[in-house]
Each structure stands twice: as C-alpha cells, then as structure tokens.
C-alpha cells in the first residue's frame, strides 16, 4: 500500500516536476508570470490525443514533435505579446502586473478555443495501459513511459543548464538581468529563449500527462496552480528545487488521494503552499 503510493506518487511527481521546471524558467529568466501556462500544457495534451486518435501517431513520437513545436509557440508568444510589455515596462515593477493581466486574458482565450474545438468533456486515450510489475506493485506501462520521458527531459535540461555555455547564459540572466549585458549577454534574446524553453517543457509535460490521465479543456488553472506552488516551494528560478518539490507534491497528492479522498488533491496543494508561505517563503531548498 505504502509502496504503491510511493511509486504512483513518483510517477505523477515526474510530470509535475517537468511542469514546474518550465514555469520556473519562464518566471525566473523571462520574468513573466504566465497564468496561461496550464492552458499551454492542455493544448499539447489535446494535440497528442488528436494525433493518436486521428492519425494513429504514437504518443512518444508526438512528444518528440511537441517539444520543438512548444518552443516555437513560446518564441512567437514572447515576440508578439510579452516582448512589447517588457519594453513598455522598461525594467520597472510594472511588468509583473502587466504580464499577469495579459496572460490572464490569454488563459480565457485559449480555454475558449479549446472548449470550442474539444467541448467541455473529459478526454483520455488508452495507450499501453496494461500493468507492469515494479517492486511487486502493478503500474500501468503508460505511466512508466511518461515517467521515463520526464526523467530524460528534466535530466537533460538540468545538465545543460549546469554544464553548457548556453546554460550559463540563462542562469546569468536569471540571477541579474541588469548586469548580464555587462558581460556581453543579449538579455532580450536570452529572455525569449527562456520563455520559449519553458513553453517547450509545458508541451512535453502536457504530452506525458495525456498519456495516462483524463483531462478537460477547463482544467488548465489547476495545472498552473500546482506548477506555481512547486516553483514557490522549490524557490523561484531554482531548477533542482523545482524538481525535488515537484516529486514531493506528486507524492503528497497521491497519498491524500489514496488515503483520504481524491477530491481533496487541490486542498493538499494549497495546504502545502500555506505552510511554505508561513514557514519559508524563500523556498524550501534555497541556500542561505
């Protein structure tokens, strides 16, 4: 029983971690608080379902295609929508308010389009849903595949951020957008990359989610909310923290769902959020 919770929680946590990773990149590097993040995730989830049902495309191939597509969408969104706001704010605190409001509008826009095209009902696919035994616990194969994708994608990103010159640039802008230009970094371009990369992660997370969960066009808010809570828990802009906190939230949620009531998962998320805010608002994993 406990082992089941642990394994299922870790699987769910993998997707959450990826989800939060994208949001922490968008907020940490591009300084955009993207309230439509969950809706971007949902678009990817719906695309995967349609590709699977309509074209018979394997979800794994879909996810491989979704990542670059997400990057392009993020790039375009930043260029058309966020960039002008960043320029208008000119480094003042106004960007935060403006981006919150603009993405709040985007949330309803995307939700409206999804409702129009997919309807209000829950959707899911049946893909690799036979059980596989893991330490004696039967876990659906699709969950394992999804978890594997999350580990690979998240791991690759962590390594890239830590080891490559490109990762160093992203981290420099996250740390200090004011002084990054002094060492020859094109901040505007880096921010756009950060935003686009975050959207790509949202797309991959949405794809993996669609492999094993049911979802509907109106569920984006909950995804955004969970990703936000994980980002706060992990410390804004802290990649390792987001991964750890994502896993932790997946575990807590699975525990609450199995031991208490599946209808209280959001309540569990909020309870954690409250505790973090009251106890360590700078995040659980921030080095002091």
């Amino acid at each position: 029983m406990l082992l089941t919770t642990l394994i299922l929680g870790a699987v769910l946590g993998g997707t959450y971690a990826l989800l939060a990773l994208g949001l922490t990149l968008q907020y940490g590097i591009a300084r955009i608080m993207n309230l439509a993040y969950g809706e971007l995730t949902l678009i990817a989830a719906f695309v995967l379902v349609w590709a699977f049902q309509g074209l018979g495309l394997s979800p794994i191939i879909s996810i491989l295609l979704l990542a670059p597509a997400g990057y392009l969408v993020g790039w375009a969104l930043y260029t058309v929508m966020m960039g002008p706001l960043v320029r208008r704010a000119g480094g003042s605190g106004r960007l935060e308010v403006d981006s919150i409001l603009a993405t709040f509008g985007l949330l309803f826009l995307i939700q409206g389009v999804l409702l129009l095209t997919a309807g209000p009902n829950f959707t899911s696919i049946s893909y690799l849903d036979r059980g596989v035994s893991v330490f004696g616990v039967s876990v659906a194969a699709n969950k394992l595949v999804a978890f594997g994708i999350c580990v690979v994608a998240g791991g690759a990103l962590v390594v890239a951020l830590a080891r490559t010159r490109w990762g160093l640039t992203l981290r420099a802008v996250a740390l200090s957008p004011v002084s990054a230009p002094l060492v020859g970094i094109d901040v505007n371009r880096t921010m756009r990359q950060g935003f686009a990369l975050g959207t790509a992660l949202a797309a991959v997370a949405g794809g993996t989610l669609a492999m094993y969960q049911t979802f509907s066009a109106t569920g984006g808010v909950v995804f955004t909310m969970k990703a936000l809570v994980i980002v706060i828990m992990g410390g804004v802009g802290n990649v390792g923290g987001a991964l750890a906190a994502g896993l932790a939230l997946g575990l807590v949620e699975t525990f609450v769902a199995t031991a208490i009531d599946p209808g209280l998962t959001l309540a569990a998320t909020f309870a954690i959020f409250l505790i973090v805010l009251l106890w360590r608002p700078q995040g659980l994993f921030r080095r002091r």
Binding site: L101, F104, L106, F108, L109, Q111, G112, L115
Partner: peptide, 8 residues
C-alpha cells in the same frame, strides 16, 4: 470566452 480573452 474567446472574445473576452481578446478584449482583455
């Protein structure tokens, strides 16, 4: 909802 979002 789409019109709302655009208006916003």
């Amino acid at each position: 909802p789409i019109i709302l979002g655009l208006l916003f």
